[in-house]
Amino acid sequence: MFLKRYIPIGIVAFFGSLTLFGWFIDNESVEAFVNDDATQWYDIIASFAIFLGALNLLKLQFLKVVKRQSGWQYSVVAIASFFFAFTIGFFMKGAFFVGEEVYFTQGAAEQAILASGSSETVKAVEWGAHISTEGGLFKWMFDNIFTPLSATMFALLAFYVASASYRAFRARNFEATLLLLAGIIIMLGRVPVGSLITPWMVMYLLVFVGTIFMANYFKDRKIIFGSFVVGLLGVTALGIGMDWNPTEPAIFFLPSLQEWIYTVPNLAGARAIMIGIGLGIIVTSLRYIFGLEKSYIGDQ
């Protein structure tokens, strides 16, 4: 109990308080510890956590293979891929220089020297630098295996966003309509095509939509038709008067409208969310430091 519960809570309380008060204490050794060593230890432990994650992954995949669970063949692929990348990262330098040229193996570099007949020698990179050497094996793995997979996983979401927009986003009430309108104006106003949609096109569209909306409330077709004609004539007259200016009136020009929405009402909402989240994080951090929140040791 002492080791499993009280010591972790004590660690959080001690180091949390030290880090928090370190912002306010003007003592060189405390500041040096909090700003430098404490943060270095944090980084080191975070690095070990990554190793733990990798080990856990291997354990789960191995168990799946051993127990012949559904899809165990793919777990073999995962394990093989892991060991392939692990070997490249830890046991192979993968970057041997002959002048400016880089080769994956010492043998290939030596063969290149023999083939060219030059007097150059093979220069291997240092351990540590081998993971960032341009042209090296680790970078090759990053460029051709990790990058396409990582990027494409994210890119898949573009399709699902489109599908969700079509099937799920409905203007069921005023709030949802506001959300959709803001989203549509931002989507169109932020890209070049928004500049091609003149304010006059938007105003004619509004007259059209307004008439359809009116049709729900007025049964007299003369009123509806009259309003429609008046709307059209009004927009046309304004357009002639303003020489069909492609960017005025600015309130109907999508790029200007989206800029106003983005920097005024959207900012208000975003700021409120930021302050709210900030207050929440402060309170939660203090709860961790005071030992009131113990979810990190599995307590409710």
Partner: peptide
Amino acid sequence: IVLFIVLGN
């Protein structure tokens, strides 16, 4: 996407 949203609605 905007057309999809409009059509869907």
